[in-house]
């Protein structure tokens, strides 16, 4: 059995970057403050020292260049792994993300686009309406982008390594609220986590809960509390939204007959809506109750950290919804 050690989520990402840059000279990075400073969240610490200022490049504040330049650099035979300081800035570089990365190969009928865009995502405590969003659903709606949403240090490392080795563009949503989370991470640098394979984070028979990112931990905590009441949750973490492992979700629902979807992103037209729809198409008669969602509010996020937490699902919210759904 492969050996493991306990690492932080941020450290696991740093390790994935370093290992992939050692493995393949074509891999390089750029972003704001990622070199000398090691990133505003410290994710790229030590990498410029090891790989030099040419392969770990500090840019100006120019998101259209960071993403569009990465697209061009991929056409030029390299593998760029770029960081946008906050995931929200995919909207600042929207043309480059959703048109250049996603469509260049399609429009021209040739080329590969091996680009990873690292996106510090989600609520972290007072960062405000333009620095806190969960925008992963956008990547599902516009064809041509893969979307990863790791919830654990091991998945952060293994999925990032898969992303860097993928010939397609990947939006890699790292949850800022998980950067300090710790967990076991395999030592083997060849151990990658494939895209499109969900993780059943907790086995259970009473209800399926689909959750991603920060919400996986909250769903697991809710499951612990509910088990005292005899409500047995199965927690499924899709890990990637594109491709989406709907088979594992459907199989779980066929076992539990109930589905609750939890996401930090706003409720309306979030990825929960898509999963609910796909499940009712494939497993309608397996369902004993409607599919419910616990999700972020349909509002911008207030900057105040206390108000902000009220806008995303809490453990209490999940417990309450699961209890009510179990009674339907």
């Amino acid at each position: 059995m492969a050996s493991e050690r306990v690492l932080g989520y941020a450290r696991a990402i740093n390790e994935a970057l370093a290992e992939e840059m050692r493995r393949d000279e074509r891999v390089w990075m750029m972003g704001q403050d990622i070199g000398k400073m090691g990133g505003v969240f410290g994710l790229t610490k030590g990498l410029q020292e090891e790989f030099g200022a040419s392969r770990v490049r500090d840019t100006a504040i120019n998101e259209t260049f960071i993403v569009g330049g990465a697209a061009g650099a991929a056409l030029g035979g390299t593998i760029p792994v770029v960081e946008l300081q906050f995931a929200d800035f995919v909207l600042t570089a929207a043309d480059e993300v959703f048109h250049k990365l996603a469509k260049w190969r399609y429009m021209h009928g040739q080329f590969e686009m091996p680009v990873v865009v690292r996106l510090p995502s989600g609520v972290v405590g007072g960062a405000g309406a333009e620095h806190s969003q969960s925008l992963e659903t956008l990547g599902m709606h516009i064809a041509g982008l893969k979307v990863a949403v790791p919830a654990t240090p091991a998945d952060a490392k293994g999925l990032l390594k898969s992303a860097i080795r993928d010939p397609n563009p990947v939006l890699f949503f790292e949850h800022k609220g998980l950067y300090r989370a710790k967990g076991p991470v395999p030592e083997d640098p060849e151990l990658v986590v494939p895209f499109g394979v969900a993780n059943v984070a907790r086995q259970g028979r009473g209800m399926t809960v689909v959750a991603t990112g920060l919400m996986v931990g909250r769903a697991l905590e809710a499951a612990d509390r509910l088990s005292e009441d005899g409500i047995d949750l199965e927690v499924v973490d899709p890990r990637t939204l594109v491709p989406l492992d709907i088979d594992t979700i459907v199989a779980s629902v066929e076992k539990t007959h109930r589905l609750l979807i939890v996401h930090e992103a706003p409720r309306t037209a979030g990825f929960g809506a898509e999963i609910a729809q796909q499940v009712q198409e494939r497993a309608f008669f397996a369902l004993d109750a409607p599919v419910w969602r616990v999700a972020g509010t349909d509002t911008p996020l207030p900057q105040d950290p206390e108000l902000e937490q009220m806008c995303i699902p809490s453990v209490d919210d999940i417990v309450e919804a699961a209890r009510a759904l179990a009674a339907v």
């Binding site: 074509r26 390089w28 750029m30 040419s54 392969r55 490049r57 259209t64 260049f65 993403v67 569009g68 330049g69 990465a70 697209a71 061009g72 650099a73 991929a74 056409l75 030029g76 035979g77 390299t78 760029p80 480059e96 250049k100």
Partner: peptide, 13 residues
């Protein structure tokens, strides 16, 4: 931005 990026690749390689 695409062109500057491709030129970055050439500089790196």
């Amino acid at each position: 931005v695409m062109g500057a990026g491709t030129a970055t690749a050439s500089q790196l390689l």
